[in-house]
Computed example of a mutant assay.
Amino acid sequence: MTKTQITQLSYDIIGCAIKVHKELGPGLLESVYEMCLAYELKEKGFIVNQQISTKINYGKIEIETPLKIDLLVNDTVIIEIKTVESLLPVHQAQLMIYMKILRKPQGLLINFYTDNISKSMIPLVNEYFTKLPE
């Protein structure tokens, strides 16, 4: 994929998140927003994986961890869903490590406990993104 394609994919994901937020509003559990967002994305034809278990390579072993990725769209963009009063640096760090572990170029940190998804959402990219063609 190219940077442009990933950026477009992210815009499409954000559009779906806005639709879910307008329909449901703030105040529900993360799992509810996750299910609804996954539904919207699938309706648009995207490939969506939910609650993906992560493995970590440590030394010479591979460790199955209890860490779960909320959503992975088109095997490219990781979505971490929150329902918190305010996003903290630890939430960004969590998403960045998921992106590193799974070697994905972009992540979206989406907080549904807000009045405006597009203003509170945090897009993150890493070295895998910077190496992609335009």
Rank of each mutant, 00 (worst) to 15 (best):
92 Q>A: 05
53 S>H: 10
23 E>R: 10
40 E>G: 02
80 E>H: 05
66 P>M: 08
78 I>S: 01
110 I>A: 00
50 Q>T: 09
13 I>S: 04
78 I>N: 02
54 T>W: 02
42 K>C: 11
13 I>Y: 01
41 L>M: 13
100 K>A: 11
77 V>Q: 07
87 L>N: 12
4 T>R: 09
44 K>L: 13
121 M>W: 01
130 T>H: 00
12 D>E: 09
73 V>F: 05
73 V>N: 08
5 Q>T: 09
126 N>F: 01
78 I>V: 12
115 D>A: 14
27 G>K: 14
122 I>F: 04
92 Q>E: 13
126 N>M: 06
87 L>F: 07
130 T>L: 02
7 T>G: 04
1 M>Y: 01
65 T>M: 09
68 K>C: 02
6 I>Q: 00
132 L>I: 00
56 I>C: 03
113 Y>E: 13
21 H>C: 06
91 H>L: 04
54 T>I: 12
51 Q>M: 05
20 V>Y: 00
98 Y>T: 09
80 E>D: 11
53 S>A: 12
79 I>P: 05
109 L>Y: 03
2 T>K: 04
49 N>L: 07
23 E>W: 01
125 V>H: 00
30 E>L: 09
120 S>T: 14
100 K>L: 13
48 V>E: 09
74 N>F: 00
107 G>L: 12
34 E>N: 11
63 I>H: 12
37 L>H: 09
91 H>F: 03
124 L>I: 06
66 P>F: 03
133 P>F: 01
94 Q>A: 07
39 Y>M: 06
58 Y>P: 08
103 R>T: 14
109 L>A: 03
9 L>D: 07
62 E>Y: 04
45 G>D: 10
18 I>C: 01
132 L>T: 00
50 Q>I: 07
3 K>Y: 00
133 P>N: 10
89 P>G: 06
101 I>C: 10
124 L>K: 04
110 I>W: 00
45 G>Q: 11
39 Y>P: 07
132 L>Q: 01
10 S>C: 06
